[in-house]
Amino acid sequence: MEKVIEIVSLTKKYKNGRGIEDICLDIYQGDIFGFLGPNGAGKTTAMKIMTGLIRPDRGDVRIFGHSITEAYELAMAEVGCVIEIADSYPFLTAYENLKQQARYYPGIDNRRIDEVLELTGMLKYKKEKPKKFSLGMKQRLGLAAAILSRPKVLILDEPLNGLDVEGMIDVRNMIKHMAEQERTTFFISSHLIHDVELTCNQIGVIYNGKMLNVDTTENILKNYATLENYFVSEVEQNGRV
């Protein structure tokens, strides 16, 4: 199996003592990796480094073998991402927003724009403007923009935030479909244990900026019955030191 993301000794400390310390991870093609941890555990910090938004104090991230710190454009060439809030132009329609984005990528035609709107359940709102959208609809539009260029890797920070039950199911199905059919690799952060359990096939627990453990969802459920039991057990053993 091809190694797609390699995270080596990733460290970033803020003045308040928060941040991440010595995170190491390997993620392979077609994996849906769940980065699970409470708010403030360091998930967004790690993902901002992975997408080049902030620089690490030390360590590196390689995507398809390219270093994010030394060869940023090569590393990010096949990556789509949504970090924190999905941004859009409030006075353009959903369709026009994606049309605008399509200019950055060769070979994205109007049919592809309709296709990603359909995939994210936004086709019926294509002529509406995001300034009137709920948080969940903005999130769906952000996901549509992230998958527009058919990236091989998607880095999604809390992608189910603000979605209603129907939205969560839609997005979960979309993620699974892309991983199975297109061999897209996902790196997804969440503090929603149930969603990670239902969506991801690999799970890493982060707590107070440190990786506690990485295992397959299958193993975890076999040994602990639920992801919640596993999370509590990991934190009890390793986290509160």
Rank of each mutant, 00 (worst) to 15 (best):
C81S: 15
A86F: 01
Y105D: 15
K99Q: 11
Y95F: 15
E73A: 14
L98F: 00
Q101G: 06
L92Q: 02
I83C: 00
P90N: 05
D87K: 14
A86C: 03
Y72N: 02
C81Y: 14
Y89Q: 09
F91G: 05
Y104P: 01
R103P: 08
E70P: 01
C81M: 15
S88K: 09
P106L: 10
G80H: 11
A77K: 15
F91Q: 12
E96V: 07
S88E: 02
E73C: 15
A86P: 08
T69C: 04
D109F: 11
Y89T: 01
G80N: 10
A94N: 08
M76T: 01
D87T: 08
L74C: 05
A102R: 11
A77H: 13
L74T: 05
P106G: 11
Y95A: 05
I83W: 00
A102S: 15
S67Q: 07
A86L: 03
L98W: 00
R103A: 11
E70S: 05
V82L: 08
I85K: 13
E96F: 12
P106V: 10
T93E: 04
Y95M: 09
V79S: 08
T69K: 04
P90D: 05
G107L: 12
E78W: 04
K99V: 03
I108M: 11
L92D: 01
Y95P: 00
P90M: 05
D87N: 12
L92G: 00
L74R: 12
Y105P: 13
A75K: 02
K99S: 04
E78C: 04
V79M: 09
Y72T: 01
A102I: 09
D109S: 12
P90V: 03
N97K: 04
A75I: 02
Y89G: 06
L74A: 11
Y89R: 05
I68G: 02
E96T: 05
G80P: 09
Y104R: 13
P90E: 03
T93R: 10
T69V: 04
P90C: 03
S88P: 04
Y95D: 02
L74G: 01
E84Y: 07
I83H: 00
L92T: 00
E73I: 12
Y72K: 11
Q101D: 08
E96R: 10
Y89E: 10
T93L: 14
V82K: 09
D109I: 10
K99E: 06
Q101S: 11
I83R: 04
E73W: 13
L74N: 08
Q100E: 13
S88I: 07
L92F: 07
V82A: 11
Y72V: 03
L92Y: 01
